[in-house]
């Protein structure tokens, strides 16, 4: 399997490692760090996963290449890679939103 790294071009899967679903870390004011809302937000961030059958934005690390973290939108049904962007950029944020919009409804 090849992942088209935006910095290095298409590279073998073995050069990468995956962290899991890409999600935005909660932003909490310092004064509210011990509030219940903060704990709930971080618990959801750390433990809860959509596990969609369809496109999912994920964080991949090109450790044996440019050492960039990438936001990879991947179809979990086919392993088809729909987009790869440099994580933490506006472009990556957009691809993350697009993937969440494209995810089919979870089965009841």
């Amino acid at each position: 399997m090849l992942i088209p790294c935006p910095f290095c071009g298409p590279r073998d899967l073995g050069e990468f490692s995956v962290l899991g679903a890409a999600r935005a870390r909660p932003v909490v004011a310092v004064a509210d760090l011990d509030g219940e809302a903060a704990v709930a937000a971080f618990a959801a961030y750390v433990y809860e996963r959509e596990n969609p059958a369809g496109p999912q934005a994920e964080h991949w690390f090109h450790g044996a290449g440019c050492q960039h973290w990438l936001t990879v939108v991947r179809d979990t049904r086919t392993h088809a890679i729909l987009s790869v962007t440099s994580a933490g950029t506006d472009e990556a944020a957009q691809s993350l939103e697009a993937a969440q919009g494209a995810a089919p409804e979870a089965a009841p």
């Binding site: 490692s17 962290l19 870390r25 964080h59 690390f61 960039h68 440099s86 994580a87 933490g88 950029t89």
Partner: peptide, 13 residues
């Protein structure tokens, strides 16, 4: 190191 790069590139770019 991978974690620090994640913090630097993804969490606090």
């Amino acid at each position: 190191y991978r974690h620090m790069l994640f913090c630097r590139q993804v969490l606090w770019p």
